[in-house]
Design a protein around this nucleic acid. Sequence first.
DNA 1: ATATTATATGATGGGCACTTCATATGACCT
DNA 2: AGGTCATATGAAGTGCCCATCATATAATAT
Lengths: 104, 104
Amino acid sequence: MKCPSYNIFFETISTPIRLQIIDFLNDGAKNVTEICNHLNEEQSKISHNLKSLAGCHLLIVEKRGKHRYYSLNEDTVVPLLRIVEEHVAKYCCGECKVTVKAKR
Amino acid sequence: MKCPSYNIFFETISTPIRLQIIDFLNDGAKNVTEICNHLNEEQSKISHNLKSLAGCHLLIVEKRGKHRYYSLNEDTVVPLLRIVEEHVAKYCCGECKVTVKAKR
DNA sequence: ATATTATATGATGGGCACTTCATATGACCT
DNA sequence: AGGTCATATGAAGTGCCCATCATATAATAT
C-alpha cells in the first residue's frame, strides 16, 4: 500500500480522470463497470486510477460477488472538496474545465 | 492569471518543493531570498514555483521596496492542510518523506 | 547613469506519471 | 472442468511538468 505522504496525496487527487471518478462517487458506491460506462473510459484505465485513489485511502473498496464497489472516504474527501469548491468560487476566472461539486 | 480549476489546484500543491514553501510560510510572510536560503534552492526555481502557487491564489504577494513578500492564503491553505494532516495521521504507513504540519 | 541587489521570465531537456495494450486473476454459472 | 463476466496487473511508449540555464526587469544606492 502506498504511503500517503502529502505530495502523493495531492498528486493522486490532481488529475481530471480521478476527479471525475470522485465526482461520480459523490452519490454513492459504484462498481468498476458502472464507472467505466459513466465516464466512457477503458476498464484498465479506470482500474489503474482506482488503485491509486484507494492506495491513498481516498476511496474505500468493498467486494460483492464478482464486483468491487468503490466509495468515497467521506471523512476526508467531502470536507476537502468543500474547501476547494469555496476557493474556486472566490477566485476562478471562468475557464475551469473540470468541475467537481462538494457533497451537501 | 491561471484559473484554479480543481485539477490545477491540486496539481499545484502536489510537489515536495511547493509543499516545503508552504510549510516555511506557516510562520509568516517571507521574501524570495529568505525562502531560497531556507530551502537551499536556486532563486529561479523558487520564483517559478511561487508563481504557480500565487497563480492559484494559494499564496498572496506583497511588494515592499525591492522585495516581494509571499504569505499563505490562510482561508484556504490552513484548513486544507489540517484535513490532510488528520488523514495522514490515520493512514500513513510511516514511509512519508515530506511532512507539512497544519498551522495551529 | 551606472552598479548592485532582488526577483521574474523565457527556452530547453530530461524524467516520470498516465494511457494503452496485453495478459492474468478471480468469481460465478452450467 | 470449461466458459464467461468482472476486475486487476504488467510492460512499454509518449506527453508533459519541472529544474536548469540564461537573460530581463525592477528598485535602490552611490
